[in-house]
């Protein structure tokens, strides 16, 4: 750890700032007036794989984010295109050093401040040498701290304080919640008491996904709310519309009527698991070609049912296909095009 100047503490008025670099317009903290903001010193940050996760964190914080890095300064709003606000320059570097000094962040250090809509610092992370893990994870930690939520599974509050912004954070996150390690062959009776969470391993699109969930959680909500696999849609939550159709061991089922915990040990395939990289499944391609959707909300379910239908191979005529597909409602009325797409893809599957 490098030396600290005056550390910013929770409860203090946040430092206002204006960074110019060589740009014509300054980027200043007044852009955030009236709303919460986050100032992140992340020396090695540049836009990459974590931008979507950062957006989610910023929405949760209701904040906009200023990222100060060696590659320039970004102002990052959760629902806008991310554009570099100020390109790197010697002038900018000097300004950043000065701002860092006011925040107690050394020139080689990383650190995060969260400021509320009244301009008061609500969260200040003591700077550490370098944030080599994800900025999104740091924001997640900040969000949880602010909302009084427990830190993510596998990390105690104390661990986090010590480890959060240092190298290896990500590793701790993803491996720290292990512990059982065995496949759920389940020769024994599994018991979860009312109101307690249960640890489950779901096999989804060929990957084991470990979750700690309420036993009441449906497979559908596990996908949508816990695994960010929102391609499987919730249309009725009662098995009456088919929007949530997934494959369970190759057969079409309603994920809404399936308890996630009861799906342990099954091979689950969702719409996200159909394409091979950029190569669409023939049914996906046929749905585009035949315009077999409009609003798109039922489409995942239609395609999953159709995948099972073609795999099973019993329904062949248009009328047979219509009967077998009747558990998938399309309110936009794309039915004729869906049938055409299925019949066209039949030859290629």
């Amino acid at each position: 750890m490098s030396s600290m100047t005056t550390p910013i503490a929770v409860g203090m008025v946040a430092p206002s700032f204006a960074l110019h670099g060589d740009a014509r317009r300054a980027l200043s903290s007044s852009e955030a007036r009236g709303r919460p903001w986050v100032l992140a010193f992340v020396r090695r940050w540049s836009p990459g794989a974590d931008t979507e996760a950062i957006r989610a964190e910023l929405r949760g914080l209701g904040a906009i984010l200023f990222i100060v890095s060696d590659a320039g300064v970004w102002s990052f709003r959760p629902d806008d295109d991310l554009e570099l606000s100020i390109a790197p320059s010697r002038q900018l570097r000097r300004e950043i050093a000065a701002l860092g000094a006011r925040c107690g962040v050394g020139t080689r250090d990383d650190g995060v401040l969260v400021v509320d809509d009244a301009g008061i610092v609500r969260f200040a992370h003591a700077p550490s040498s370098e944030l080599t893990s994800s900025l999104a994870d740091a924001l997640d930690a900040a969000g949880r701290e602010l909302l009084g939520l427990p830190t993510r599974p596998g990390i105690t509050r104390r661990d986090w304080a010590v480890m959060s912004l240092v190298a290896g954070f990500g590793l701790v996150l993803f491996h720290g919640c292990g512990g059982r390690g065995t496949e759920p062959a389940a020769p024994t009776t599994v018991v979860a008491k009312p109101g307690t969470e249960i640890e489950v391993v779901l096999r989804i699109n060929g990957q084991d996904r470990r979750l700690k969930i309420d036993p009441r959680t449906s497979l559908l909500d596990a996908l949508r709310e816990h695994l960010a696999l929102t391609g499987t849609r919730k249309g009725c939550d009662h098995g009456q519309c088919g929007a949530c159709t997934v494959l369970r061991d190759g057969h079409a089922v309603n994920a809404c009527l399936t308890l996630a915990v009861a799906a342990e040990g099954a091979e689950i395939t969702t719409i996200e698991g159909l394409a091979r990289g950029d190569r669409l499944h023939p049914l996906q391609a046929a749905f585009i070609e035949h315009d077999a959707f409009q609003c798109g909300y039922c489409t995942s379910g239609q395609i999953m049912s159709a995948v099972a239908l073609l795999r099973e191979g019993r329904s062949k005529t248009d009328d047979e296909v219509r009967q077998q597909m009747s558990g998938n409602i399309c309110r936009c009325g794309a039915y004729p095009n869906i049938i055409a797409a299925i019949q066209a893809a039949r030859k290629e599957v």
Binding site: A186, P187, T188, T189, V190, V191, A192, K193, P194, G195, I198, P215, R216, L259, V261, A262
Partner: peptide, 8 residues
Amino acid sequence: PFSYVRPA
């Protein structure tokens, strides 16, 4: 809430 049991 309910207790979940998966007997073998």
